[in-house]
């Protein structure tokens, strides 16, 4: 007697177990009556897509972590955080949550510095991809709508800048910071050039951010802070030149 024909659902369920790594190619091949080598390719490719996207977004982590640890983290992330978004890059976002879990479990394995690096690199991606917002031409100077203000416990921003310069010029990686040191970072997409700008917060720029956020005009801000109007105008001009305001 012939065995009943498998439905699409049956086949997709078997494939799902293969692609999620719950079944080995050698187990799936006889069920689907297909060659092991060919079914294995699908399993490899599906995992590779996520691995590649993590390496694309979190550029510094695979370079700074021990290769065996990076592989372990990627393997575990793949198992614990299945991709649920059709846009591949979006599936890299939960990697920070995953790293935080690992940090809480063993802070020596995944340090607070690594967490801050991951936060910074993911936020850079988010800012790059952020949807455009309609701007109100009559509203005067406004904050860049893509602006993210990051409070980091470790000097991840300063390190990442140095690390990127070193990598681009073929120099060795700068030493990892040994102690926490708080950083406040402005991260935004330049409104005209579209490049991602990250700068450490300064007093003058914080002043402008607060002023524009609270919709206070230059004259009022000048009075409230006891700073000459021309100085405040200079702060605003500088913020606009940087792309922090527009």
């Amino acid at each position: 007697m012939n065995s009943p024909k498998p439905s699409m659902g049956d086949t997709m369920e078997t494939m799902h177990k293969l692609l999620r790594g719950e079944m080995a190619p050698i187990e799936v091949a006889p069920i689907l009556d297909v060659p092991v080598e060919r079914i294995e390719l699908y399993q490899t490719l599906v995992k590779q897509h996520l691995t590649n996207v993590l390496e694309k977004i979190y550029t510094s982590l695979p370079a700074l972590l021990e290769p065996s640890l990076w592989r372990e983290l990627v393997d575990d992330y793949f198992k614990e955080y299945p991709s649920h978004h059709y846009e591949l890059n979006a599936n890299g976002g939960h990697f920070r949550d995953f790293l935080l879990e690992r940090h809480n479990r063993d802070p020596h394995k995944v340090s607070g510095f690594i967490l801050d690096l991951a936060e910074l690199e993911w936020r850079e991606w988010e800012v790059y991809a952020a949807p455009d917002e309609d701007t109100d031409e009559t509203a005067g100077t406004t904050l860049n709508p893509t602006l993210v203000i990051l409070q980091l416990d470790w000097p991840a921003h300063a390190f990442l800048n140095q690390w990127r310069v070193a990598m681009n010029s073929g120099e060795p990686s700068p030493p990892l910071p040994e102690e926490p040191s708080a950083e406040t970072v402005f991260l935004f997409r330049h409104p005209r050039a579209y490049n991602i700008v990250s700068i450490e917060a300064r007093e003058d720029l914080l002043f402008v951010v607060k002023m524009l956020h609270e919709r206070v005009d230059i004259a009022t801000a000048s009075k409230l802070a006891g700073i000459p109007e021309s100085t405040v105008e200079g702060f605003v001009r500088q913020a606009v030149e940087l792309g922090l305001a527009q």
Partner: peptide
């Protein structure tokens, strides 16, 4: 083809059976 199942996205193109059901 199909590229997701049970809410999980594979980001790869998987074949369908050449069947009337499909």
């Amino acid at each position: 083809s199909y590229s997701s199942h049970w809410g999980v996205e594979y980001h790869d193109l998987l074949p369908l059976p050449f069947s009337e059901e499909a």
